[in-house]
Amino acid sequence: MTALTHDVVAFALIGASLVGPGQPAVKVHGANNSGSTGYVDLRNPSSAWTDLSGWSMVSCSGREKNALVTFPAGFRVPPGGRVLVAGGDFAGDGTRQVTVPAVDGEGAALLDRRGVFVDRFALTPDSPCREKEAALPCGHGMAPQRDALSTDTDDNRADFTCAPTVG
């Protein structure tokens, strides 16, 4: 696992919305698994702060899960806030950023303190990061992303569409 760096630039906030019953407060909003320039965009669409202390991120390659980062004590995401878990060569866009060497594979997942999947995303049908149907791949300069409210139906194909990459 990679330790967090201190390249916290700023919070970029999106409009807060309420999270439905049984829905995780923080979601995988988008991802671009392109190695050292890749990222996983986490968003908190709720109206409350969410504590990610001890939570972790993994990337998925085939049927394997690879550790990206474990969030330290006190790591919180504000209402409407976002965090990018980004590869070391990611250009950045002014968003609060957690730097890891690379974001590889065909998917990513957020796990709680107990190691239980909170939210996940994948482009391949056999990925352990997939929810129901895999998301469709995107063309050059595009990456899978949820809508502005981070709508989550637990079906990657329904939840993710192609949008311009972050950064």
Results as ranks from 00 to 15, higher is better:
Thr2Gln: 11
Thr2Gly: 00
Thr5Asn: 12
His6Ile: 10
Asp7Glu: 12
Asp7Ser: 13
Ala10Trp: 01
Ala10Ser: 11
Phe11Asp: 15
Ala12Gly: 09
Ile14Pro: 00
Ile14Asp: 11
Ala16Asp: 11
Ser17Asp: 12
Leu18Ala: 15
Val19Arg: 13
Gly22Glu: 08
Gln23Ile: 12
Gln23Met: 14
Gln23Lys: 13
Val26Gln: 11
Val26Lys: 08
Val26Tyr: 06
His29Glu: 12
Ala31Cys: 09
Ala31Trp: 04
Asn32Val: 05
Asn33Glu: 14
Ser34Val: 09
Gly35Phe: 06
Gly38Gln: 05
Asp41Cys: 09
Asp41Thr: 10
Leu42Cys: 11
Arg43Thr: 10
Asn44Ile: 10
Pro45Ile: 09
Pro45Asn: 14
Ala48Lys: 14
Asp51Cys: 06
Leu52Tyr: 06
Leu52Asp: 05
Leu52Ile: 08
Trp55Ser: 07
Val58Thr: 12
Ser61Asp: 15
Arg63His: 08
Asn66Arg: 14
Ala67Met: 09
Ala67Ser: 14
Leu68Glu: 12
Thr70Tyr: 00
Thr70Met: 02
Phe71His: 07
Phe71Asn: 08
Phe71Met: 10
Ala73Cys: 00
Pro79Arg: 06
Gly80Thr: 02
Gly81Lys: 05
Arg82Ala: 01
Val83Arg: 04
Val83Trp: 01
Leu84Asn: 03
Val85His: 05
Phe90Leu: 07
Ala91Cys: 04
Gly92Ile: 01
Gly92His: 03
Asp93Glu: 04
Gly94Asp: 03
Pro101Leu: 01
Val103Met: 07
Asp104Leu: 11
Glu106Pro: 00
Gly107Asn: 05
Ala108Ser: 15
Ala108Asp: 09
Ala109Lys: 09
Leu110Met: 12
Arg113Asp: 10
Arg113Leu: 11
Arg113Met: 10
Val116Ile: 15
Val116Pro: 00
Phe117Ala: 13
Phe117Ile: 15
Arg120Leu: 04
Thr124Trp: 00
Pro125Lys: 14
Pro128Ser: 11
Arg130Leu: 02
Glu133Leu: 13
His140Met: 10
Gly141Val: 05
Ala143Val: 06
Pro144Ile: 04
Gln145Cys: 07
Gln145Tyr: 08
Arg146Gly: 02
Asp147Phe: 08
Leu149Asn: 14
Leu149Val: 12
Thr151Arg: 13
Asp152Trp: 12
Thr153Lys: 15
Asp154Gln: 14
Asp155Arg: 08
Asp159Asn: 02
Asp159Ile: 03
Phe160Tyr: 15
Phe160Ala: 06
Thr161Lys: 02
Thr161Tyr: 04
Thr161Phe: 04
Val166Asp: 12
Val166Phe: 07
